[in-house]
């Protein structure tokens, strides 16, 4: 009696599930337990429109379960599930990993995929594009000397804090940086603007004291 870990998804009749989800889910649970399965986790996964009609139904309620059972019991269980009319369709998958680990992994990996698509989306004119360009531009400047467009703009910004103590007015570097790089993220701009202003204030103070 060795058990294996399984993941099973059931599509329940939408009308029955919306009327009383607990009861329709209990039908599934009963079938699983009848065949000696111990249910580890169960959840209502989603309510969605089906990609195609199943048994004349256009919508379905998805019920996701994780359980441990004897592999030999699965065949009989499948037959039982197929005979039931409130279950439109089901899919049982044997897991390679223990259930808890599997759930954690899938959650993590889904997040990774979402993050990747966010980073690498080609974007339109919206905020996504700006997010993507920020780090890549930094990377270019670090790696390579720079091409024609970005090279002149960068030294001005870098030099700005260094120049300010040497009596240059605070406004000009900030303005030039703003003109040169309108696409720059706002996070940088206030910091730059604030730093020269503070520097200028200190210089004026020292001048006054002198």
């Amino acid at each position: 009696m060795s058990t294996r870990d399984y993941e099973a998804m059931f599509i329940l009749n939408h009308a029955a599930a919306t009327a009383d989800f607990e009861e329709t889910a209990a039908i599934v649970d009963q079938i699983l337990e009848k065949h000696g399965a111990t249910i580890v986790q169960k959840e209502k996964w989603d309510e969605r429109k089906l990609a195609y009609e199943i048994k004349g139904q256009r919508r379905g309620t998805y019920y996701l379960t994780y359980f441990q059972a004897d592999p030999s019991a699965i065949v009989a269980m499948n037959e039982d599930v197929q005979l039931n009319e409130t279950i439109l369709r089901h899919l049982v998958i044997a897991l390679d990993l223990p259930i808890a680990e599997h759930i954690e992994n899938t959650a993590n990996e889904r997040e990774l995929m979402a993050e990747d698509s966010r980073k690498n989306s080609l974007g339109g004119w919206g905020g996504g594009r700006r997010e993507r360009r920020g780090p890549s531009r930094d990377g270019d400047d670090d790696g390579v000397g720079g091409d024609g467009a970005s090279a002149p703009a960068r030294p001005a910004v870098v030099a700005a804090p260094a120049k300010t103590p040497a009596k240059t007015p605070a406004k000009t570097p900030a303005d030039s940086s703003a003109e040169a790089k309108p696409a720059e993220t706002p996070a940088d701009a206030p910091a730059e603007a604030a730093a020269p202003a503070a520097a200028d204030a200190t210089t004026t103070d020292t001048a006054a004291t002198e």
């Binding site: 992994n105 899938t106 990996e109 995929m113």
Partner: peptide, 27 residues
């Protein structure tokens, strides 16, 4: 070249994923 490899690389390799979840409809 760097840009090109970044662009054409497999998205699953890029995300450093080990398995593809069949429930992840978005991807």
């Amino acid at each position: 070249l760097k840009k090109r490899t970044e662009r054409t690389k497999c998205r699953f390799t890029r995300a450093r994923v080990f398995a593809i979840d069949w429930k992840d409809i978005g991807t």
